[in-house]
Design a protein around this nucleic acid. Sequence first.
DNA 1: AATAAATATACTCATAATGAGCATATATAT
DNA 2: ATATATATGCTCATTATGAGTATATTTATT
Lengths: 353, 353
Amino acid sequence: MSDNIRELETSSVIGLNAIIIAVTDEVPRILTVYDTGQLPVSPLSSDQMKPIIDDTVALPFGPFDPKNHRTLELGLHNWVEKQTGLDLDYVEQLYTFGDRHRDPFERAGGPRLVSVGYIALVRQVPLSGAGEAEWQNWYDFFPWEDWREGRPLIIDSTIKPHLKRWVEQIVDSQEREINRERYSIAFGIESAGWDFERVLERYELLYEAGMIGEALRDSQIRAFISGRSNPFVEDKSIEIAQSLGTVMALDNRRILATALGRIRGKLKYRPVVFDLLPATFTLLQLQLVVEALGGVRLHKQNFRRLVVTGGLVEATGQRDSLSRGRPAELFRFRREAISERTASGVGLPAARI
Amino acid sequence: MSDNIRELETSSVIGLNAIIIAVTDEVPRILTVYDTGQLPVSPLSSDQMKPIIDDTVALPFGPFDPKNHRTLELGLHNWVEKQTGLDLDYVEQLYTFGDRHRDPFERAGGPRLVSVGYIALVRQVPLSGAGEAEWQNWYDFFPWEDWREGRPLIIDSTIKPHLKRWVEQIVDSQEREINRERYSIAFGIESAGWDFERVLERYELLYEAGMIGEALRDSQIRAFISGRSNPFVEDKSIEIAQSLGTVMALDNRRILATALGRIRGKLKYRPVVFDLLPATFTLLQLQLVVEALGGVRLHKQNFRRLVVTGGLVEATGQRDSLSRGRPAELFRFRREAISERTASGVGLPAARI
DNA sequence: AATAAATATACTCATAATGAGCATATATAT
DNA sequence: ATATATATGCTCATTATGAGTATATTTATT
């Protein structure tokens, strides 16, 4: 049935990726590191191949060392602390990424890099530690995901026309229909609106359509490996890719898209934001954090009603002084809310199938 | 920053676990295999140590072979097909399990077994292939999770009293309070009701309280490893453990608990059940599948309203003949429902924080 | 001091979703 | 013909949601 796994010869390596999230000044930020040639993608910067795309921004990454760490999560805590000085509090496993295409340079027979992604939510921003870690605006990587100032112009100016043309150009009619539907669902073309959780679906479409910088980079690498000449890339394509956000190493931006979708989904049914806020906060602060992650504006009075009547927060009696108008009351998170079925997801009996 | 992972010496092994789910005759079933001494836990059955618990039931498991498989998911498809003859359709990654405690026999320096769990939903039941795979009632492993015939008696007769005693006996007062709250949330003691999604939390409490067979087994193994004599286990404890469901190898039952919680959560906002049903079905069949997974009874008329008015299904015009009373109409799943925001999750604007 | 602007908080109201039940329709079993 | 089983349709009270108006309390400006 199952081989004895003690004897199984392996050719894969387990690493851990950290998506460390903080919200400050109404900006959702993630921690990035610079990755100049250490990762297997390095040949890009060799003089054999002139890279058309700069992809040196990466997610913090560390190996998993089973000798010293009882659990994956403890391993993560350990090297994140060393690299950034951050002491992670809320940590949640995101996904395990092990596709071959995540590293276009993997040689046949070379070890497969499998990495387990973890989301961490933190309050602090100050960094110390050994690395050159840096906070970056999450929406720098996904300019089409932030709707707080209205529908992003890039959607109608760039994304929709090019994506549409890409769909129409597909030769196989069945495949064309499938992708037309994917496009329609992901970008809310007809009937349906924009679903803020479909971040990954949108990213994948843009990648497949060759509009994202990573797609250009990967096709260049593939050509290089197979000994073909550099594929011809129009200036126009590079321009489009640049307008579609910062490129990251390997499949890191895909991981980031997965994380954003996950966090947005969780907002709806788990009191997750409180790990991003100080112990007491005004309702406006709370709302701004939710809006930052959701990428959308909410109705202030209804938000208050939801959160107060729903028993998620309770007033402290103190008030905030720094604001401009009438001072807001300070609230704290009601831990008991977790156990009360109203607050944390409507449960199954309200089955939505 | 990050070491060159190409050179990283590894001492972990990646495996894949499949949780293959089908619902037949109103029973949710999962596929299990027999695991007699192949897995690292084998010394249990050696004559050096007389096992007090039989734990030969396991989840299908296969190694991940990066040489031959482009993605983790493809690797899974491959060996599941070989072992069971099943052609998996809907597959979703569950979680990556890499804790040291998942294998009490891991020696210091031995390879760590990291396994990526996948959930698969299938319609068929007939099995072929090389293995001695077998379908088992999911609730045989979690007798307290099926509320369809009312509140399971075991909760009040066994679980609550013993768990309560375990909490009270904790010496550190702060730790005691934490566990009192965990207990109260997980089993819906006060204010809150029973939350059908908290399957893992309930399982973990029972494990920590030493009530589950796996807990007895693991403490025996630990004693054996550290050269201590067998811990004294009361007959009463074994009796309790037996009443709390079938024991599985390693941490397989924990994985199963994670899966049940995940599936139940998804029921609420994703049209997931349709992969368990034939192309056309009556609304009763649909409801029975949802109830089987949810472990709860639903209001028939409201279920119909939800599913029909919500646009999740559409009538075919044909009717089912086999039933006893008035023949039911056959419905089919409306694929378009995925793109219509109503059916698939309420989206963020209805932010529940 | 008076007024404007900004922010917080309270309340209203129409509409939609949910939970529970009664009523009717159409089949099989006796 | 009658009982029983199941499917389907409809009502109604309650709660949740989305959008707005009204009022309160502060700082900034004149």
